[in-house]
Design a protein around this nucleic acid. Sequence first.
DNA 1: GCAAAGGTCGCACAGCGCTT
DNA 2: AAGCGCTGTGCGACCTTTGC
Length: 315
Amino acid sequence: MRYHKLDLNLLVALDALLEEGNVSRAAERIYLSQPAMSSALARLREHFGDQLLVPIGRRMVLTERAQTLRGEVRAILLRIQQVTQPLGGFDPANAERTFSIAASDYFSIVVLPHLLAYCSQHAPGVHLDVYPLSPRLSEGLERGDIDLLIVPSIYALPDYPQSTLFEDPWVAAAWSDNPLIGDTLDEERYFALEHVIKRENHAMFPPLDERMLSGLKRRRKVASSVPQYSLLPMCLPGTPYLATVQAGLARLYAQWLPLRLMALPLAIPPLIEIMQWPHHKIGDHGIRWLRESVAHVCASRFARGEPREAFSPQS
DNA sequence: GCAAAGGTCGCACAGCGCTT
DNA sequence: AAGCGCTGTGCGACCTTTGC
């Protein structure tokens, strides 16, 4: 079948070639043999009057024309996917589908188990592929690789729809036998003690608590830094250190570790967790169901900015 | 409606060029 | 020299077109 002298099947091959930059991997990607993909590339070269991919040593490199085609071809295919998706709702009980979610370690630990339980009960054929946050989130959403992004509101990507999921206040956590800490924690002691903090791994994701505290004039004494919030509670037992952790995460770890949780003696805003999704999947009933399911699970775990289980400083 | 002819596409295989 | 990746060739399967 031709459309304006172009076999539209070649668009799929072109997309794979432009994304992979390699004939063999492109063939594998769309379940063609390597010679068939080579043939497709030859036809594409003839159609566009451009080499598209040129060999540099053992690598294939995209030409300038190919670079400009890359985003446009991807957008066309996503639009086709949007237009051709079957009408009618998403039937979670009978659906066989895998959703891709990008989320922080915090969300993965605090909410994901409950989301998986919800899915296993209501949508046994639905599978969730969860990926860590990366600097290429926007590209993942644009390409359709990520169905749902779940991040703190300050990490929100501009130009994508979003919805607030819940709020979680910050608490101070310490070893339950820490002799330097009494029953309560005041601001003087908070800044007098040494802290274990989450360090900045990428400029796109500055540590949330550090950013909240940046409005204050005082700085914390840092004893050690770790790459993830989920590691903070585990670093505390047996140490004199303090950590500033999301209440939901702190309460979870306090069930297994000898931790003392205390209300933070500082007026810093709570963590606000949001979800975002790609524009071209707004009409996707499956992703709408996923969003509603995530919101439902979060609502059952968090209510009005407080964890469902009332926060107790000594728990 | 059916059969033959022609065109297209993908596969297997072989060959070539480059890198290690 | 071996391995890797791309290209070319021959063949078969499938689809479309054409003639009856």
